[in-house]
Every structure is written in structure tokens, then in C-alpha cells.
């Protein structure tokens, strides 16, 4: 089980609701993923947050916990306003906080992010901040009161997987009590498994599933990868070595095999 602000979830996969070929495929893919938390965007799917009731009712049918996000927000003020709108619309104090600095990379504006997180937490929100792998930023977010921190693996939608594993490892080591989620940039199930193997509590993804040729099958693949990664982490991964280490004793091996 994994805990987000005191709420327990069986699945360590959080999934987005955008970009699917149809709402029906979105529903099937989310079910196949086993995810208990689904992110929904107020800005990306709808102009001004007036997304159709029909679409929301399809999400509600899934019986999942909704995590609204502030995707597309470019300033602290915009993100805070969107978060408040989301709280009203969905009746939840959870918010995935995105403050975007740069349109090319969709890189988080980490300064604005900390500021917005601080404001929202003081307003009673439980914040899931989307940040870079920078430890100092993560620590500021924790100082502001975030119990969950979500560093990227790589830029949103880039499908590059974890590009700075050392930094993510360091963040895991330094923030052992915080729920850490790798968010954005995962392209393949193996990327998700790697995040869980690093000790991350969960992963959040959208494009890799929604834009797959078969989103439902891909959702299933990610579910299995996340489970495998977590089991691998719990089982205790062996450390990497510089040289070969035989799994079978060499004593008793004829010398012409031992030296060949």
C-alpha cells in the first residue's frame, strides 16, 4: 500500500485522463492500469474549466480518486486560481500543482512552484507538486508543507525515461518520509519499473499509455512493470559491480575451462 496525505492506495500507478482516442478507451485503459488515482486537467481539456458534465461522469464511473491538476498554468496566480476552481468543481483539497516555466520543455518554474505550494497549503490544500529532480527544490517544497513530491523523469511527453537517476536516488535517500512519485517523461514500462526499483513510491503517467497504438494493453504493461519494480525494490536489489562475480564456485572446474 502507498499513502498520499493519509489515504491508502493499493496501486502505485497514477494515470492521466488526457489524449486518449475516445473516452471509452480512456475508461478501459484506466481500469487496465489498476490505478486508484486519476489526474484530470482543468485547462488542457477545456477552455476556462467548463469541461462537459458528460465527460466528467465517465470519469466518475471509474470509481477512482480524482487528482485535479493545474496543467498549462504559467504563473503562481494562475495556478492558485485554477486550484481553487478545481476544489470547487471536484470537492477535493488535493491538487497536482504545475507551474510551467518554459513552453519548449514544459519545465517547472521551481521558484513559482514553491511559492504557489506555500499559498495553497496555507489555504488548506494538499499539494502534489510537479518539480524537477533538484533536491534543493524538493526540500523547499517539503519545508512549505508538501507530504508528496513529484520530480520528473524527463520533460513531459518526451518518453525519454529517467535521465538523471543519481539525482532521483539522492532525493529518495534524503527524503525518506515523503511520498515520492516520478511524474512525466516515462515512455516505456521499463522506465516505470526503474523508478520503483529506485525506491520511489509511485509513478504518474499519461501520454505513454494514451498515445500507444493499443492504450489498454499498454496500461496493463505499465501495471505489471510497476508491480515488478516495487517487488524488486522490496526484495533488495544487488549492488552493481565493476567485474564479473561467478554465481557458481569455480573450484573443481577443470583448469582449461577456468582459464579460457
Amino acid at each position: 500500500m502507498v499513502s498520499f496525505y493519509g489515504k491508502e492506495f493499493k496501486s502505485r500507478l497514477l494515470i492521466g485522463s488526457a489524449l486518449y482516442p475516445s473516452p471509452a478507451i480512456m475508461q478501459d485503459a484506466i481500469r487496465a492500469s489498476g490505478a486508484g488515482i486519476v489526474t484530470v486537467s482543468l485547462r488542457r481539456e477545456s477552455a476556462g474549466g467548463k469541461t462537459g458534465d458528460a465527460f466528467w461522469s465517465l470519469i466518475r464511473e471509474l470509481d477512482v480518486t480524482v487528482l485535479p491538476n493545474t496543467a498549462g498554468c504559467r504563473s503562481v496566480r494562475e495556478a492558485v486560481t485554477t486550484a481553487k476552481l478545481a476544489r470547487e468543481l471536484f470537492g477535493t483539497s488535493w491538487i497536482k500543482l504545475e507551474v510551467i516555466a518554459d513552453n519548449d520543455t514544459l519545465q517547472p518554474d521551481v521558484v513559482g512552484l514553491v511559492e504557489a505550494a506555500d499559498i495553497l497549503i496555507k489555504n488548506g490544500f494538499e499539494v502534489f507538486p510537479y518539480c524537477t529532480e533538484d533536491l534543493s527544490v524538493a526540500m523547499r517544497l517539503v519545508d512549505a508543507g508538501c507530504k508528496v513530491v513529484m520530480p520528473w523523469a524527463a520533460p513531459i511527453g518526451s518518453a525519454r525515461g529517467i535521465i538523471n537517476a543519481d539525482a532521483l536516488k539522492l532525493m529518495r535517500d534524503r527524503l525518506p518520509d515523503i511520498t515520492l512519485v516520478v511524474d512525466a517523461g516515462l515512455g516505456a514500462p521499463s522506465h516505470a519499473a526503474e523508478a520503483l526499483e529506485l525506491g520511489y513510491d509511485a509513478v504518474l503517467l499519461n501520454t505513454a499509455v494514451a498515445k500507444a497504438a493499443d492504450p489498454v494493453a499498454m496500461a496493463n504493461a505499465f501495471r505489471l512493470a510497476v508491480e515488478a519494480g516495487r517487488i524488486g525494490f522490496e526484495a533488495g536489489l544487488m549492488g552493481a559491480r565493476d567485474f564479473a562475480s561467478p554465481s557458481t564456485p569455480v573450484i573443481g572446474t577443470p583448469f582449461w575451462h577456468a582459464v579460457s
Partner: peptide, 13 residues
């Protein structure tokens, strides 16, 4: 292609 039923064209679009 927007999941919503309001009318008009937004500045973003």
C-alpha cells in the same frame, strides 16, 4: 477538440 459544451472560441484556441 475539447471535452466541453460551451460555445464560442477561446483566445487559447
Amino acid at each position: 477538440s475539447i471535452e466541453g459544451e460551451d460555445t464560442g472560441v477561446s483566445v487559447r484556441s
